[in-house]
Amino acid sequence: MINVKDILALYRKMVLVRAFEEKASMLYAQGHVLGFCHLYIGQEAVATGIFHNLSSNDSSITSYRDHAHMLILGVHPNVVMAELCGKVTGSSKGKGGSMHMYSKEHNFYGGNGIVGAQVALGTGLAFAHKYKNDGGISFTFFGDGAANQGQVYESFNMASLWKLPIVYVLENNGYAMGTSTKRAASGKGLATRGDSFEIPTILVDGMNLFDVLEKSKEAISYVRCGNGPIIMHVDTYRYRGHSMSDPATYRTREEVNAVKENRDPILKVKNILINEYSILLDDIVKVDNEIGDIIEQAAKFAIESKFPEESELEMDVTI
């Protein structure tokens, strides 16, 4: 059973992600962040819950929607914000930006801008775990849109054939840009896509941290026992447009508001902390305020940091 201290810590992480993303969107509006910028607002419980059960040997990879993964794994918000602003103090020295963040220290391999590519790469991470016999497993996050790429199924096939240690986290947030899942995916839905490879699928409510925690524990123990791959089909929702430039006219305001009001992952944990664990609202506000300060610091750090020098241009092309 999870204790109240852990729940508070997880609450804090989710608030960190949301506050970070909100600040990123402000810095975008002010012209500090440029190009593509995809926010994780609404989906916070997914990566927070799954990474809670991570071991130090494990590895992970995701799409361009990657700020949250960095933060939850423990990369300092200053470094993530600085990367967003293209500064030399950022995680890729400003060379990658929003979509291309990595943390070698946490075995986090990005940050991939090509939809679906991370699924094959993540399967390769699992291959390496098995090859090295290091006990680690790969957490490979991808979206409902990515789930239609051919390489996903090529990967599923080999992962199952070779019993690779991998948890596929299919984050179904309902939309791939302006295309809803039902307009893009045939058959009985994405949760059945592992069937013909005999990869089991666990259904997860991604708006409920506790469900994510419980199901990911299940998934992880299945994979760690050497059973091969598993799929977590996570039902979740993104509150903002696909990226900063998407007005999201393909869905109604009512649809978005209904999720915010009834299924918000942060609100849910907050209410549980107050109602079931008798945590005082004051203590929660204290956490929120602390995070607020950390985020302000991160923004200040990013804005005040220097852009990379000219000498950086030709570095890191080859070793």
Binding site: K93, K95, V317
Partner: peptide, 12 residues
């Protein structure tokens, strides 16, 4: 273009 993958940061 310079023979590098195109960097994000405006300065580069």
């Amino acid at each position: 273009s310079a023979e590098v993958p195109v960097p994000y940061s405006k300065s580069l």
